[in-house]
Design a protein around this nucleic acid. Structure first.
Lengths: 197, 197
DNA sequence: ACCTGAACACCGTTCAAGT
DNA sequence: ACCTGAACACCGTTCAAGT
């Protein structure tokens, strides 16, 4: 209808993003299509940009997934309460489980990022610190925290790989967690009770 | 040098395989290139066959990986000894860990197959049976076996994703496993000792 | 700084056709 | 029965070039 030639004034400039925008969009896309569907090309398409443009913000898909994992952990963080060590570890495991469950394929994303050593916010380190603070020797603190992490990861990964998203199965998680904590109890300190206050 | 025309007698017939050949080759290829490098096209190339020929033996890559997992479990199976339930479960977990460690990315292969319900030889079912046989109620047997599996899977997956292939770290596995078994001990039966013989 | 355009070396899967 | 040939709709990544 209008003149077909020349001007085409503003707004034909390409979109412009920062790294955080890319990471946020990747998380949204993960929710839509899952880890398997989350491709660099699809993400670029979602942002209205060419695939090659993404490599200005992240070095590789692997690095992007690491950043996604860190952001998930950040968003899921809750205030640290000072409790008996068992309750403190239980809460840390529940927080971790909730963070994994909150995002599609969350367990797989967090575990692969951790295995590649991408995350700065390693939850295992936090749990090991709680054990060490409560009289476990460094070795036991390390292995105990790992064992808890492996349980949580295995539990959620199993459910998510089976396509079960929901929270029921909560009971199984609580029982499994109690089993591991009970096994820990006979090793850390002499007993697991706190007499403070 | 020879006459360029016609005959070219025998042996130009295409290769011919059975499903088991394809699965065996897939396991070999997995060892060479890992789960990430294991593609249908690469496998076809290894067999000297076109990619489309594979779909005569398996319905999809997913089904192939399920068959690979089953074969791994089969190869790793050891004789069942009758022992106290703790030793029996410990042995089952060690067997599972060894099977996972024996193959590159073995933990990931076995876990994804299990989650999709492909395997007929489910090790979790076996462990649950041991617990049920020893006085655990069905619920505890199920959750206890799952907890053990999640620990084993998480432990090996962690190591393999980090690119650590070797067996050392054995000590961590033994300690973690002892923690879980100890936690189980206070729940199954009243005590965990056998007075038979 | 952040983007486009074009290319390279790949994927899983389907389907008609050959023997 | 098991294979080829050809196609469809994709991948991650690199690199020169634009603004």
């Amino acid at each position: 209808m209008a003149s077909p030639s020349s001007p085409a004034p503003v707004s034909s400039a390409p979109a412009r993003y920062r790294r955080a925008d890319v990471v946020d969009r990747a998380i949204d896309l993960l929710e839509e299509v899952g880890l398997e569907g989350l491709s660099m090309r699809r993400l670029a398409g979602d942002l209205g940009v060419r695939p090659s443009a993404l490599y200005h913000h992240v070095a590789s898909k692997q690095e992007l997934l690491g950043a996604v994992a860190d952001e998930m952990l950040e968003r899921g963080r809750r205030a640290t309460e000072v409790l008996g060590w068992q309750d403190e570890l239980r809460l840390a495991c529940v927080e971790l489980r909730d963070t994994m469950l909150r995002h599609r394929d969350g367990a797989a994303v967090l575990a692969t990022a951790r295995a590649q050593g991408v995350g700065g916010t390693d939850p295992v380190t936090r749990m090991a610190a709680v054990l060490a603070f409560n009289g476990a020797d460094p070795e036991l603190a390390r292995v105990g925290a790992q064992t808890l992490f492996h349980f949580v990861f295995g539990h959620v990964a199993d459910r998510q790989a089976a396509g079960v998203a929901g929270e029921p199965g909560d009971a199984d998680f609580a029982v499994g967690l109690a089993i591991v904590l009970r096994g820990l109890e006979t090793r850390v300190g002499t007993h697991g009770d706190d007499r403070s206050s």
